[in-house]
Design a binder for these strands. Structure first.
Lengths: 115, 115
DNA sequence: TCCAGGTTGTAAAAATCTTGTAAAAGTCGT
DNA sequence: ACGACTTTTACAAGATTTTTACAACCTGGA
């Protein structure tokens, strides 16, 4: 994932809004959540997440993805488990609950997330 | 940031007013604070600050930015840490506390004279 | 159904990376 | 050379990320 910065604009991980509340995310947490929410409704295989967010190759033995998922779920609040579902043996899937817009990445100029 | 000096004008960094008190800043401190306060509310990446204030290119290994931030914070007084926030892994962000106007740089002459 | 073997959850430790800080060293103008 | 300012150095403190170790949990086949 690439993040483009304008000379006078900057990303502030601290300022992500989610479901009407501010989320204080770390960089990796942000990238992971972005990855998931941008593919809302789709199951993202562990291999893909590890590849895109961490650059890990298939076969790498690590539990860091699980740990990050856990921290994200906690930060998402009471419905963390529902927002980020576990697809056993495959990966994770982000779903929108109610009418909440998952991640407000709004102004394109502020920061563009490249696939 | 570039500061233009007229032959007949001398800038007196001593005369910067901040939050109802006079600040005695050095040139670099002033430029850094100006940079930050002019982008109030935005996170200014270290790379940008180092580029604009120091002319350093990305990758330069230096701690001079941190040192200047520290001195600024001290001079800003009791709330230095709150005025200049650290955005971990990115840079710094200046925020206005209460109704205080951070730095009056508006009209070019405004800060030229120590009055 | 129940078990075995792989998969995921989790807390806590360890490792890594970033920022804070004091003090020394270097620079520049007068 | 002196004084004021700036930068570097070297380490401390802090934040984030990864690993470890084990518990809990699926799921397919006996």
């Amino acid at each position: 994932m690439t993040i483009f910065l304008d000379d006078h604009l900057s990303i502030d991980w601290t300022a992500v809004r989610f479901d009407n509340q501010k989320l204080t995310l770390t960089r990796k947490e942000f990238e992971l959540l972005a990855m998931l929410s941008q593919n809302e409704g789709e199951t993202m295989p562990r291999t893909v997440l590890l590849e895109t967010v961490w650059g890990y190759r298939i076969g790498t033995r690590t539990r860091t993805l699980d740990v990050h998922i856990r921290r994200l779920r906690r930060k998402l609040g009471r419905f963390g488990e529902e927002y980020i579902q576990t697809i056993f043996g495959v990966g994770y899937r982000f779903v929108r609950l109610r009418a909440a817009r998952p991640l407000q990445l709004s102004s394109p100029a502020a920061f563009a997330i490249g696939a």
